[in-house]
Every structure is written in C-alpha cells, then in structure tokens.
Design a protein around this nucleic acid. Structure first.
Lengths: 339, 339
DNA sequence: TTGAAAGCGCTAACAG
DNA sequence: CTGTTAGCGCTTTCAA
C-alpha cells in the first residue's frame, strides 16, 4: 500500500464517510447525475464543503479518456504576433472549460518534437500550432487521433486545418481607403519579399489601385521590418516620385520611419501625403505623429476561430483547408485630416 | 463496462499481451525500475514501439499525487511585461519536465478565482501569479498545500514568496551611468506617480545624484507612460531648466517622445543632452534616433527565479519574502557619442 | 526474474 | 433512492 508524501486531499471516499453514504452516491449527488434525495444531497454537499473537497479532474480524465486540455505550440516565443492569437484561443477554449498548455519551441525542431511528446503523454484533446510568419510550415507529426489546427502560420499540407489572416484583403482594404480619399499616386513600403504576407499585401494593394486605373508608384519597395528601412525607403520614394500623394506601409514600425522622413522632408501628413500601415499595433500607431491609420489583422480572432475549429475537430467534425480571417481598417489622423 | 467513443490508445496491458508478459513487468521494464531480464526488456520495448505506446501521464499523476504541471496566472493579458516573465518561467520549468497552464485573468477577480478553481481541480503542483505593475496585490486564496509564487507583482502578504525587479537599483544604475559621463544637470521624466516603480526608480536616481552632490533638475516629472507625455514633459523641462545636460526616462516610449521634442528644439543627443530610459524594449530602443541607452529589467530572469522558487516550494523548501532581481544597463548611442 | 493483486480517485452499471 | 462492484491506466508490494 504505497503512501506518498505529497499532500493528501480529501476524496470522494472521505466525503462519503463524513456524510454517512457510499462513494457512488457522493459522485451522483455532486454531479447531479442519477437520482439522489434532496436531503442526502444536502448532507453530501455540506460534508464536501466542510472538507474543502475538490474533485480530482485528472482521475476523471483517466476515466473519460478526455482531458479537457489542449496544447498550444508557438515557434516565435509568443512575440507580438502570437500573443494575441494565443489569447484569442485561450478565450474561446476557456468558455468550453478547456485549459491550455503553453509551449514555446523557439523555432527549434528538437524542442518542438519534445513538446509534442509531452503533450501527447498528457493526453491533450488537441493541439494548436502558431508562429510568426504567414509562410506555410511543415506539419507536426502526431498520431491521427489527435486533432491539430494551425493558426497564423498554415500547414503546407492542404488536408490540414489552418486559420490565417487574409493578407490580400489587407492590401486591398488599404488601397480602397486611399483611393477613396482621392489619392492616385500611391507608394508602398514594406518588409522582405521572402514573406508571403508581403507579396500578398502588395498584390491586394495593386488590385485596388488597378481598379482605379493606377499602379503602385515607384513599385514595391521591399526591405526589412524596421523603422530605419522606413526612413530610407521614404527618401528613395520621394526622390523617384516627388509628386506622390499617399504611402501604404507593410507595418506600423516601417510607417513610423516614414513619418520621420516625411517630416524631415517638409511634407505634411495627411495633407501632402496620406499614410497608412499594417498591424495596428496600438502603442506604436497611436504614439506616432500623426497617429497612424492602420490595418488591424484581427489576430485574436484568428486564435478564436482556430480554437473553434479545434473544438469541432475534437467533436469529430474536422475541417480541412485554409480559412481566412478578414482584417479591419482603423482610421486615424494620418489619413484623416478632417477631424 | 463503459466503452467510450474517444480514441482508445494502446495501454500497458496491450503491450503486455503483445510481448507475452504481465502488465507489471511492462511497467518495470519501461521505467527501468525493478529487475527485468535484458531479453524481456527488449521484447517489451519492441512491442511498445510497434504499438506506438505512450504512457498516460494522467494516470501516473493520479497514482503519484503529483501532476508535474503548474498554473501561471496573469492579470494583464500577457502584454509586454508578463510575456518575458512567463517565458522565463516556462523555460526553467520545462527543464524540470513541468508543463505550464496558461490563465489570463484580465484583471477580473471573478475570472481569477475561476481559474484558481480549475487549476486546483487539475491538481497543479504550484501556481505562479504575475501582473503588470510592481504595486503589491492581494494574495490569491488557495489551500495551504499548493505553493504560490508571485512574480513582478508582489503579494501584499510578506509571508508569501515574491520575485520582483529592483526598481531602486534601476534608477541608481541610470544615475551612476549619467554621472559617470560627467553630466550633472539631470532631469527625470517618468510615468504616473501612483506606480511604486515610478517612485522607487526616482528614488534610486536621486540617491545616485546625491552622491555626486546634485539633485534631479526640475524635480520628478511624473505623467503617463506615453510618447505624448514624453514630448510634453521635455518641453516643460527645457523651459524650466534650459541648461540641462541629461534626461533619464521611466520608459522607452516616454524617451521616444523626448527624442522628438529635443530634435524639434535643436538639441542634439547625446552631445547636448544625454538620454537614458527604462525597459530596454528592443524594437523601440533600437529604432529611436539615436538608439536609446536603456535599463533592462531582466524580466525573463524574474520568471526564471520565480520558477526556481516554486520548484523549491514544491519540494517542501519554501521561501518567504520579496526577492529582488537586479537590472542591467544597456548602452547605446543616446548616451555614447564616442562610438 | 516474473506474475498476481491491490490501489490511486473517480464513475457507471446493476442490484437491492 | 442508495450501495456494491468493476474498471479507467498505471504502479508497486509481495509471492512464486
């Protein structure tokens, strides 16, 4: 009879003896299953309260073969992008009384597979995989009975279920907005062209401009995600296309750099040049001079939808393919001189 | 005989029949406990591999009364501050093969106590509570057998174990640095004085200046954590103390605002005015013109130490009181004209 | 060296 | 309405 040193908490049996009934009856009373007389139930609940009884969910899980637990693996240390996704997912899952295991793989395949082993050992009901970039990734390998949903970073296997941001729509949204303001000579300064997101956003922007009979002024200026690149690219653009009347940026940080270069060049925002960007990173967008109009990628919605799909898959109704979440335009002073 | 629909994975018993031995022997062989002949062990491992057997940690936990799982509760949605703490903790715990449950209470007491219930039900071995501010908080209520460590935001009960950043040292570090550069007329622009961190940092700065025979020029300018306040306060300071030769800021964002105001005023950094700040938020500090010297609060170390203390408490060696983590100075161009 | 049996904490089936 | 029994998956005495 092994007796361990860890804390011995009160059990169903303890409650049973305290209430003078059998363990089975305690279970029924506390779970409102089966038929128990009000009088007995009251006595049991009383005893449970006095003993500070809290049912052991682990034991239930063993019995139910269901842990009400999911794993969330990120490759990017939950930086700016995956945090909102993760919170959205946690939110949606919490409502279904499911807890989330946090795993930061740091983009290391060894760590990642280690985490997968651990999660499977803990019998998670499913796994959400998230990352930074929207470039597809190799699917993780788990036994077929554990559902997996990819968020933000899709799986390269089209049979998997992925939920990502609609980058084309993001570009188009910005384009339509600037066009709607009457601008026609619109530049685009963005991140490295190795990112699918960069290419798709540019594509969406180009489509919007095409419909208005124009093209991206100066072409797509792809560089890095930094403020420094924003400053530099803005200078290039002002030199090549001095008559430009709007610029759309691939990130808020880039846009910050652009605001500075424009100020240095004596161009005012938005009257001379309207400026929009992507991410809607509040602290950055609102702190800029002027505050930035930005495309919100609705990352927490990505997380919520991913969680939703995972729940469905756990229930046996699994989807496959890539689901797109639509971004939203947030207008601020950098395109809105009116207010 | 309840037969559930959830996936039936292979069990010790399955491996046992496949290998033609008893379950007990499988357990011994796989855990390298007890004595098993090499030949039998090989056969068992072979069978386990073929069946894709993975031990059910939940069942082990029930037996061991130890889940190798901890809960992490944050009040601030894992924003900029608690993310590094959480990652540091996850790192330290992962090494001990402990998984982390993520709980975002959003500063809502109802949600918080709900999460605590859930965590205790899942029989976590311990709980880490973290938040945004360094102001003490009311301790969470759990049964005495579940250890709790507070990170970043200390418990108001001195008998609890808390791990926080040393704000006084942060202020002193900045002061010593600026003094070391030969500056003597040093201003301080910081966040709301309702934050303990704000008051303690100012205090540390003041001490450093005192030792050099000076005081904070213009007094402590306490406002908000925004860039806008940084801009505004810098203007105030330039007016009241035009001969100022250094400014220390309570956050990188505030410092960003200050850089702009100084540029507008035609003061150059660092030759006219040296500028230092707090947080070392890399993206922000490095993107500034010039890049900002900043005090790194070593948040991930806070998380690591908290995890360490929690592990000790789980082993029965619990500490109490507040432990301070020392910040680090990161020098960049805003105080270093030399390079 | 191996197997049989009992138990971790909980629940469901079946009697009474 | 309540108690008994068996079993979730695993481990650990204790015999053989």
């Amino acid at each position: 009879m092994p007796q361990k040193d860890p804390p011995r908490r009160s059990t169903v049996r303890d409650v049973a003896v305290a209430a003078g009934v059998s363990p089975g009856t305690v279970s029924k009373a506390l779970n409102r299953s089966g038929q128990v007389s009000d009088e007995t139930r009251a006595r049991i609940e009383q005893a449970a309260r006095e003993l500070g009884f809290r049912p052991n969910e682990l034991a239930k899980s063993v019995f139910n073969r269901r842990s009400f637990t999911v794993g969330m693996i990120t490759t990017d240390s939950f930086e700016r992008f995956s945090v909102p996704v993760m919170l959205g997912a946690e939110d949606a899952l919490g409502a279904g009384r499911i807890s989330v295991f946090l795993c930061d793989s740091r983009d290391d395949p060894i760590r990642e597979s280690h985490y997968i082993e651990v999660l499977l050992g803990r019998r998670v009901d499913g796994i959400i995989v998230t990352g930074r970039s929207s470039n597809p990734r190799k699917p993780i390998s788990v036994d077929a009975s554990t559902p997996v949903v990819y968020a933000l970073t899709p799986s390269s296997d089209p049979d998997d279920c992925s939920v990502v941001v609609d980058d084309v729509a993001a570009g188009r949204l910005a384009g339509d907005h600037l066009i709607g303001l009457g601008r026609r000579r619109i530049g685009h300064i963005t991140g490295p062209s190795s990112f699918d997101a960069v290419r798709r956003r540019a594509q969406g922007l180009a489509h919007a401009l095409e419909e208005a009979g124009t093209t991206i002024a100066g072409g797509v200026l792809a560089g890095s995600w930094s403020e420094a690149w924003g400053r530099q690219a803005a200078q290039i653009l002002l030199r090549s296309n001095p008559d430009i009347d709007a610029i759309h940026c691939g990130s808020d940080l880039i846009a910050r750099g652009v605001t500075e270069a424009l100020r240095d060049a004596g161009r005012s925002i938005p009257s001379d040049i309207a400026l929009s960007s992507t991410d809607n990173w509040q602290l950055i967008a609102e702190g800029a001079r002027p505050p930035l109009t930005s495309i919100d990628m609705n990352l927490s919605q990505v997380g919520q939808v991913a969680a939703q799909r995972l729940l469905e898959a756990i229930e046996g109704k699994s989807q496959s393919g890539i689901e797109l979440v639509t971004p939203t335009l947030v207008v601020r002073a950098s395109t809105d001189g009116g207010v």
